[in-house]
């Protein structure tokens, strides 16, 4: 199952990082596949971070959604 919500990097030790899954759950994940630093939010899959999601990109999503709604006005048929 893919976890949709990015989790916060708390500490980094080599290729391993402690991340906060929320509700007090802290786990070690491998960060070999990404360039993550402390404080970043990462997507985690099967114990590996697969992407860093920065706040700007997340904000961009909300902007994109609004843009799509405006674009999806009348269509050519």
């Amino acid at each position: 199952m893919c976890l949709a919500i990015p989790v916060k990097v708390l500490e980094i030790d080599g290729s391993t990082a402690k991340v906060d899954f929320g509700r007090g759950v802290v786990r070690e994940v491998n960060i070999t596949l990404v360039d993550a630093k402390v404080g970043d939010y990462v997507l985690v899959h099967a114990g590996y971070a697969i992407q860093v999601i920065d706040r700007e990109a997340a904000e961009e999503t909300v902007r994109l959604w609004n843009m799509i709604l405006e674009l999806s006005g009348p269509v050519r048929s």
């Binding site: 990109a57 999503t61 799509i68 269509v75």
Partner: peptide
């Protein structure tokens, strides 16, 4: 919604809704 728009325009495109990742 993005797929429906393509269908209505009779276009086939590759689009990315998940730009944050």
């Amino acid at each position: 919604l993005m797929l429906l728009r393509q269908v209505r325009e009779e276009e086939a495109r590759l689009e990315n809704e998940y730009t944050r990742s």
